[in-house]
Structure formats: C-alpha cells, structure tokens
Amino acid sequence: MTEEKHVLSIIVDNEPGVLSRIAGLFSGRGFNIESLCVAETTEPLVSRITLVTTGEPPIIEQIEKQLNKLINVVKVHDLTGTEFVHREMALIKVMAKAEHRAEILRIVDIFRCKVVDVSLDHYTIEVTGDEGKMKAILNLLKPIGIKEIAKTGIIALIREAR
C-alpha cells in the first residue's frame, strides 16, 4: 500500500482544549500532521480545522473514524477525491540587494504576489496559491536568498456544483 495525502476539513466546537484533543489524537496514535489551520467560522459556536495528513488508506480511514469519535468534533470531510479549492498563503522575506531588486519584482509580477514590506536590503512578499505555485516561486527566490518564511498551511472548501 502506498501513502496518500489527504486534506481533511473538520468542523469542531469552538471551545478551549479542542485543538489539543485533535493534536493529542494524532500524536498519541502516531498519525501524521503535515499542516493544520484553525479559525472561527461565521457560526460562533464552531471552528473549522483544515488538516493535511498522509498515510496508507487504512490509516486515513482510522484517522477519520477516530476524529469522528471525539465528542467535540461535529463533522469530518475528507476533501481528497472530491472537487475542492485550496489555498495556502506564505510571507517570504527575500534578500533584496540593489542588483536583485528588479528581478524580484519581475517574479512578484509573474506570480501575482504583493510586496508588503520593504527595507534597504529586503522585500517581504505575500504569495497565495496552491502547492505548485508555492514550490515554483520558492525555487526562483532561493538562489537570490530567502531570509525567513512563514506559511499558513492549506485551507480548503468543497466546490459547489456549477
């Protein structure tokens, strides 16, 4: 069996301690967390967690069942295998010496990113996109020199029928 990557969208009670129940479940049972994103929804009583995990199919099945077993988990959607949109955002601080500035701005332009902070020797760039786009821009910026990076992890929603 081969490992698969799955994006889970989990609706949970918006209560203290819920995140540690989920994190504890994953660490206690040796499941993987590749990324995890939590925020409130428009309904104040619940939050949405978008969690990316990898595992062989029986493990993914266990993960879903174990999540559903938690009292504070309202609903688990396995988005993988369905039509869904997903985005990740990154803030990338690149070294921006005079000789590189034009090149960086070109990349920013091509990838439709934004420069959100500037100093004498760096730019901070805001990028939004899927995994492929993230990889591509990082590959281009790496040779120029990345000082720091912060990523949100994936957030995702099911696509509605057209």
Partner: peptide, 11 residues
C-alpha cells in the same frame, strides 16, 4: 458499536 474498532487491526 465503535467504528474505529473495525479494520483497526485486521482486514
């Protein structure tokens, strides 16, 4: 009664 018991250890 517990779905997690099923297919946890054996097919």
């Amino acid at each position: 009664i517990d779905p997690t018991s099923i297919r946890k250890n054996i097919p």
